[in-house]
Amino acid sequence: MYAINVDNVTKFFSVINEDKTASGFTAVSSVSLKIETGKIISLLGPSGCGKTTFLEMLGGLQAPTEGSVYVDGKLVLETPPSIDSTKKEKRAYKRKYRFISPLANSMWRNRPKHDIAMMFQDYAVFPWMTVFQNVIFALKLRNVPKRERRERALHQLKKVGLDNALSKYPAQLSGGMKQRLALARALAVQPKVILMDEPFAAVDILTRERLQDELLKLIDETDITIVLVTHDISEAVYLSDEIVVFSANPGTIRNKFTLDIKRPRRRNSSEALEYEERIQSLLKYETKHLGDYAI
């Protein structure tokens, strides 16, 4: 059983230029990918190659232009009618989502469409809620019974070491603490899949390595599937079971590596360095035509 099944997905953005002409941009082009339950997958690639777009399609924050994404066997978002669809289909789609966006869960009842949690580079924890309220709120949105919420929130916050900052607001936390909060919030709801978009990119290197270790410890012995977008090769090699390298223009899968390095892993072990070198040379080739482009 695959946790995530991406079937020939394409994402096309129509762009209105300054001179009012319309043009298009293919951010992701015919990508197919199957991800097994319980694995950690990294998506690696130069910036602008559509990693975020791809992840947002997995999370149901953007609908693919073509193809479909299944999480846990369920279709994530209905693909909008394409140019070749009949008028009737187009009209039906338009009418269906006239008042409520296709991304919305429902009007009144809290219920996620899919059992996923997301983490963003800029944390996206709610600044108007305290640390504790942030986690409680996420649990409430999952309809966890009231008495269970506190216990689970407190338990998870203790695990990430935030139990002495419960009544602080995110503005009072450091970047690392905010990311811990986001991690605790994602884990507390016990999702099947966690999607992370460069989660550790905004913290310093020492905190980053600690957070990586904590992440591995926290998801140990769970069957949570993790899709991790990163531009940090050593992070990808240290964490993942599989690395998917993307190439830009249009964004497609360039190559896949399965890492059979035993866990617990050591940073900078010879095996790891070997993988890093291989990926590095692949990405160098990948970005050569872009000039001195930062990865």
Partner: peptide, 14 residues
């Protein structure tokens, strides 16, 4: 980002 995050946890529009 806040909307996306709340929606992914299951928030209804209300």
């Amino acid at each position: 980002r806040y909307l996306a995050s709340a929606r992914s946890f299951g928030a209804s529009e209300f």
